[in-house]
């Protein structure tokens, strides 16, 4: 199945040709979880401050993904 991962801040900087509106398209086996998607992108869960699946905030990295899901992954940021 295909899922889309949108990366933000320093996570995004690792990809020179990052596609801003679309994110990264991942091909994952059916039944894969958010944790699997993060592992595929070498993102350590402890470095993630906020996750959204299909625009809904979630903390459950073991939640299953479905075809076409959009995952958004944010590292720790601050300022203002």
């Amino acid at each position: 199945m295909q899922v889309y991962v949108k990366l933000y801040a320093t996570f995004r900087l690792k990809y020179k040709d990052y596609d801003v509106p679309g994110g990264i398209c991942l091909e994952l086996p059916p039944g894969s979880t958010i944790a699997d998607a993060m592992q595929a992108l070498e993102i350590q869960p402890e470095k993630v401050s906020l996750l959204r699946k299909n625009e809904v905030i979630t903390k459950d990295i073991h939640a299953a993904l479905a075809e076409g899901d959009v995952l958004e992954v944010f590292p720790y940021v601050g300022g203002g």
Partner: peptide, 23 residues
């Protein structure tokens, strides 16, 4: 620290726009 050592030097305080929007 990931914020003062990485995110802010690379992207400044405007790095907050996308995450505050997502929140």
């Amino acid at each position: 620290h990931p914020v003062s050592g990485e995110a802010m030097p690379a992207l400044g305080t405007a790095v907050l726009i996308n995450i505050v929007n997502a929140m």
